[in-house]
Write a protein that binds this DNA or RNA. Structure first.
Lengths: 341, 341
DNA sequence: CCTGTTAGGGAAAACGTTGTACGTTGATCG
DNA sequence: CGATCAACGTACAACGTTTTCCCTAACAGG
């Protein structure tokens, strides 16, 4: 049903080879202006569209980059995905997006599909905790370049990430300087390096200030507003004496804010709150949120850049490289006055 | 480099055809248990992955559904995308996602790629205003089924949408019953049917109540919090006497809230606010937002279902069908007491 | 007139699958 | 003992490209 080179060739009275050459305008090949025109017009007339499968099969490369994210309802994951997608398309490649959250085994399936579709490279936007060495092994052995935006335990990949430890440190240091000593912490799934790092930053800040960490002020929360809300409720029910809360991300923080305010606490007077990510939403939170800003665009760009370096024919760097970008503290109103004031 | 049927055949000492048959376990074919085992083990050993391009080329169908959205930073678009992706994968098909926002001409490119990659169907999650008849023509002529989740002007497609007119009506009717007469309106780009419908609902409610619409209370805003904020500022600077605002979506509403509160207005005492979409964020807004809830899951499911009906070999329904799902009013706190109280 | 060159174009072989149309065996049966 | 028939495999032709290698004019130089 679809129009092929053969159809054009027949209609234009030339060979398939000629059509192919014209349509790709193959360099160093001489095709008469008359035939060239003829072919082009016929192709347009018939509504020809190149068949990518045939092309890929013949060429042995797809000019396709796989993009995988575990949960795109997490806003930062989506923003990274979008930035990466754009950067890749700007380089003339296409993208294949896998949203793993769709099903449990979706991530493994995605890896298989990645190979099956002959993707030239893979960008792990946000690997899940289930993504292990064994799962990645076949892919890596097949020699396709993989760059990740969050470390995968036990696998030594090219990695362009954000230094969440610094992020956690900045947040807690800010709170301590403001005089807080009892700082609750709504943290994420500690199986993830990205979540553990924040915790490390928390601890480091306390240690540096000669303070002791009290883990009874720690609560775990899943993604999203509601989970932050629940975690805050849990914190309240424990009756802890926290004067501040550091949240794993802005959505958690905004959710938590509601719980605290429902309990009659004023922010920042009775309780200081710090988020993480600097989403647009954080600026429009009930109380504008002091938070940690991640360089999402830069991270995505660097990751894509690295991937394309690996794609370069001559490129040969056996040892994966590791980049960790620094986040920044963004001060708004949820912690009260400026620390240095 | 990748492992092919040929490699397995050589290693297992059988023909390519046999390998293919075993691996697909082709029905009505007798292959000895011994050879079968041999083939399977060798395939596993070598880490064979089916080449989808070769398969698609041979079969003439890709078992791939295209998913296109103009701007996935709009949360509802993302949620639809995700729901559709899941539904499609549950049916054993794969998806190809195009995030058009990446570039200006991205949507047209996506349509071309859709044909080039032999997608068996296309789901327009959120077509942009630039998507015209001419752009869609080649695709439609090629005979691939297209289902849209928002009407495309001038094109008669299968469409599963949400009745935003009813949504707008519900919102405004609610406000009028609460006694509001001067209702400002932060609306979206009226080139879109989805945005115009809300306006129609607004007008209908006013008309039914025998009231007159004052369009000086209308302001346009783009997507996101910040644009809502700006629109509200504009409204304030006009010095209008509105006692309520209906917003095109929840993000706009939350952004607007901030502007109003900064201006010293209390919500809902001085100003009632209604949003649209019922995002998780709306529940955690500075003042929990009264809003219109869209049946996103249901819509996505129905759209996918329709698409697969079209894919059915025997199916023949020349006239596209049109489904419009009703949204619902969700009452929270941003408008004060219950209307019927 | 012969030779060499060059522009213009074509034939055909891959790429990795799938499916049809054929072989080959043995064993069974009339 | 020849025919029949499962049971088990194989050969080969597609699918739509790209690309290498070749052919044919035409024409210039000698």
């Amino acid at each position: 049903m679809p129009v092929t080179l053969k159809d054009i060739a027949r209609e234009a009275g030339v060979s398939i080879a000629t059509v192919s050459k014209v349509l790709r305008d193959e360099p160093e090949t001489f095709i008469g202006a008359r035939t060239r025109d003829k072919v082009v017009t016929v192709a347009r007339q018939l509504g020809y569209r190149q068949n990518l499968h045939a092309r890929t099969l013949r060429l042995g490369k797809s000019e396709l980059i796989g993009l995988m994210a575990y949960d795109v309802t997490t806003r930062v994951a989506l923003l990274r995905l979008q930035a990466a997608d754009r950067a890749i398309r700007e380089r003339g490649y296409r993208t294949a997006v896998w949203i793993a959250a769709a099903r449990q085994d979706a991530e493994l399936r995605a890896l298989e599909e990645c190979q099956s579709s002959m993707a030239d490279g893979l960008l792990l936007i946000q690997p899940s905790a289930e993504l292990t060495v064994e799962a990645l092994k076949p892919l890596l052995e097949s020699g396709i370049p993989v760059v990740t935006m969050a470390q995968v335990p036990g696998v030594d990949l090219d990695c362009v990430t954000v230094d969440r430890k610094v992020g956690g440190y900045l947040a807690i240091d800010h709170l301590i300087r403001l005089g807080h000593r009892r700082i609750a912490y709504i943290h994420g799934d500690q199986r993830y390096e990205t979540d553990r790092s924040r915790t490390e930053g928390y601890v480091q800040a306390f240690t540096e200030h000669g303070l002791e960490v009290d883990r009874t002020l720690f609560v775990e929360a899943g993604a999203g507003y509601r989970n932050g809300y629940r975690a805050a409720q849990e914190l309240l029910s424990r009756g802890g004496d926290q004067t501040a809360v550091f949240c794993n991300n802005d959505e958690n923080a905004i959710g938590a804010m509601r719980a605290f305010r429902e309990a009659g606490l004023r922010i920042p007077e009775d309780l200081a709150v710090v988020g993480f990510d600097n989403l647009e939403a954080s600026e429009f939170a009930p109380v504008p949120l002091t938070t940690i800003s991640q360089p999402i665009e830069e991270q995505s760009h660097l990751a894509v850049e690295r991937l394309f370096q690996r794609l370069e024919p001559g490129f040969d760097a056996p040892e994966p490289h590791f980049v960790s970008l620094p986040p920044q503290l963004v001060i708004r109103e949820s912690c009260g006055g400026n620390a240095d004031a």
